[in-house]
Each structure stands twice: as structure tokens, then as C-alpha cells.
Amino acid sequence: MSSEETCRLRENSPSQTGYEPEDAPRARQHWRAVLGGQSPREVLARMLQGDPLDMRVVVSRRLTERAYLFDADRVHLRALAHCARRALRYRGNPPLETWLAELVDLALFELLREDAAAERRGSAPDAEILAAFVELARPLGLEPTAMGRVCLAHNLLREPDRQAFYGLVIAGRSLEELAKAQGVSGVEIARRARHGLEAVLIAAGQLPGAQVAAVEVEQENRLGAESTSGVCASTEAREPECTQGQEPS
């Protein structure tokens, strides 16, 4: 994760918080030239030549802001595909920075759903997907497959729990600092971080059966509630909308 400490643990969406990448002016000047064309394939080719809209910056920031542990290249590729597919209909509204951030959020939502579905099916992870976890797993003495499960478990946490665990554990921030940033008590942050810890423990095979069942029931309930609430109707063929800040399932 990048070290954008000031953006970290932000609960609200970029559009709600006035989020704007530092290099936004450069991207804003060029979008018409980049996103215009005859076909999505043409746009895709342009987007891959030097990253003219700074999509990788947006991916990096959204991962940090939303406290996800993902292979950023996968997210980048999926977000590019969404961008290319919708580019010809984009007319400058919402602002480019917001539009790109929404596409990244949509990519995150889809990948998380696909990973969760693959885990439920018990499918062996793709070698390309596993490659991203090698670096992450080594210092902790875990296998890449186990690390993949740990990351998925973390990503499936409710956003407050994910932010608390990420802030305390990954970013190394203090309980006090997090409590202040999130406007809740230190005890609440510790409680949330503990939820995160339980999910990680399950994924790493470190929690006894009874507790595993309790946490899994909670996760199932959460996924069920989100799938029926129609969060990010991303498979809709016609301009799917993904509201930032909403939780993927």
C-alpha cells in the first residue's frame, strides 16, 4: 500500500470528500483525446501507453483509502477494461477523477465477488493471482495460497472492521490516532480490529471450530444482506452504477 497517511481510513467516498488526485489537472486536460475513438479496444491501447489518465494512481489510492489487500495489477486491468467499455459514452460528467474512482471501485467489487465465489467453490487459485501473494506471504512464513485466503478474509470484512485492522496492523497506527480519525472510542477500534483478527485467524487456520462457525455465520449474513440490497449492480449491461464507499459483497 502507498503511504498516503492522510487519506487512510477515510470512510467516505472521494466524491463526498472532495477527493482529487494530485495529478488530476494533467489527466483532465487529456481525457478527450484518450477516451475518444472508434472502439473500446482503441481506448484500451491508448490507456496502456504511459497511463495518460493516471489510472494506476487512482487504483493505488482507492486500495489505500478503502483498506483493501489486493493485487493492484489485477484491479488496474479490470478498471481499464471498464474504462475502455464506457469511454465512448463519457462526456465529462461526473468529473474525471470521480468517474475513474468509481470504475476502480466497480473493479474491486467484481474481483472481490469473483474471489469469494472461487473460494466457495473450492477452486484452486489461478497461478497469476497467486503470484501477487508470494511477496506478501514470505515475511510472515505463510504459503501464498494461505496468504490469498487471509487477504480475501480481510477484504470481506465490513469496512469499519477492515479499516481498524488495516490501520492498526498494516499501517501501524496507534489506537488513539485511529479512534480520533474515525470519531469513535479506542475500545470500539479495538473491538473492530478484533473482528478483523478473527477473520484472519480463520483464514490462516488458527481459530477453533466453534469460533469459525460463529464468524462465518456473521459473514454469510452480511453477504446475503448486501446481495439483496443491490449494491453495485455491476453485471448490468447498461451503464452499471457503482456508488463509492459502498461495500462490495
Binding site: M1, S2, D23, D51, D54, R56, V57, V59, S60, L63, L69, F70, D71, A72, D73, H76, A132, E135, L136, R138, P139, L140, V169, I170, A171, G172
Partner: peptide, 15 residues
């Protein structure tokens, strides 16, 4: 602390 740097996404160099 070992996890922090390792968790750096592969595209965090961004530019």
C-alpha cells in the same frame, strides 16, 4: 512491520 512493506501493491509506484 514485515507485512507493511510487503503489502505495498505492485502498482504503488503509480507513475
Amino acid at each position: 512491520a514485515r507485512l507493511g512493506p510487503a503489502a505495498e501493491p505492485r502498482c504503488s509506484s503509480a507513475t
